[in-house]
């Protein structure tokens, strides 16, 4: 049955087996089972090799590294130190402050990224002309590499001759030190991020809106519901699942922030925007303490896992609630 697999080893085995195998049911079954296993596995094995080498092994290796005083320059496994790297992580004020910056960025970027994208999608889902134009406007920044976004926005935020400050001055308002004031820098990065990535949520919301059957609105209109009432009592509840999905994806993406901060402020001014991934990167690749960097990676991984498990539980409950 299983005429498969082009490896010579298997095909010779197949030719030999029928001659030797006793015709008892058990033996044939076992042989066939073994051969079918191999035939099926052979499809999966190429992926599993890549997966094992480039994902599973680094996960294991990272944990091993975190248990040693491992340095990128010196030898690796000479100095076993148990969980000392983890203890240091939890006592390191720089770890906590960078973790706080990551959370602050998540808190600043998530609400506008969810609410504005919903607003844009609600507007664009009406009978408006030139829809392609809005999609182009909101979505195209999403396709830009982070370094292009950083170049453009650092230029936008320039003091004096930067576009934003130039207009502020023309309006008679004071300049804002967008990237050099520690109290403002993270807000500026959040603004850039909203501009850069809102297209993704916009597209998901638009897809969700198209799923809502038209006749529900028609029925509501017959009952005399106005446009805003329809949005509140039909659209938003029926979009709940899409909203939860967008929220889950957004929080996870925001927690992994690195590129735009690293490229726009390099974590400054005075480390006031440095996110946790940048601190891990610096420990690993500028001070070469890869053991310590691995321990922090694992602590952060645990946080991400907890957040995603909580969110997926919420997502499933929400899904059950809407369908059932």
């Amino acid at each position: 049955m299983a005429r498969t697999v082009s490896t010579p080893a298997v095909s010779t085995a197949r030719e030999r087996v029928p001659k030797r195998a006793t015709p008892t049911r058990g033996a044939t079954g076992r042989t066939r089972g073994w051969r079918a296993d191999l035939a099926g596995l052979s499809f999966v094995i190429p992926f599993l090799i890549a997966y094992g080498i480039f994902l599973v092994w680094p996960v294991i290796q990272g944990f091993r590294m975190s248990l040693f005083n491992w340095s990128l320059t010196g030898s690796g496994t000479t100095d076993f130190m148990g969980f000392a790297n983890y203890r240091e992580t939890f006592q390191d004020p720089n770890f906590w402050s960078s973790l706080w910056h990551t959370l602050l960025f998540t808190l600043l970027s998530t609400p506008p990224l969810v609410i504005l994208s919903l607003l844009f999608a609600l507007l664009a889902n009406r009978a408006v002309p030139a829809r392609w134009l809005y999609r182009l406007a909101f979505f195209s920044p999403y396709l830009l590499p982070s370094s292009v976004v950083a170049l453009i926005w650092v230029w936008m935020y320039q003091p004096g001759f930067g576009l934003i400050n130039g207009y502020l001055m023309r309006l008679g308002l004071g300049e804002i030190a967008w990237l050099s004031d520690p109290d403002v820098a993270m807000i500026s990065i959040a603004i850039t991020t909203v501009w850069w990535t809102i297209g993704f949520n916009f597209v998901l919301y638009l897809a969700g809106l198209q799923e809502i059957p038209q006749d529900i609105y028609e029925a509501a209109a017959i009952d005399g519901a106005t446009g805003l009432e329809q949005v509140r009592s039909i659209t938003l509840p029926l979009l709940a699942r899409t909203t939860t999905l967008i929220l889950v994806l957004q929080v996870l993406a925001s927690l992994k922030v690195f590129d735009q901060i690293f490229l726009m402020t390099n974590g400054g001014p005075n480390f006031s925007t440095r996110p946790v991934i940048q601190y891990i990167y610096e420990q690993g690749f500028t001070t070469y303490r890869v053991g310590y960097a691995s321990a922090m990676s694992y602590a952060f991984f645990l946080l991400i896992l907890v957040v995603s498990l909580v969110q997926f539980t919420l997502l499933n409950r929400r899904r059950g609630g809407v369908d059932g």
Partner: peptide, 8 residues
Amino acid sequence: QILIVPLF
């Protein structure tokens, strides 16, 4: 992101 160190 958490794999960069062991991958390198």
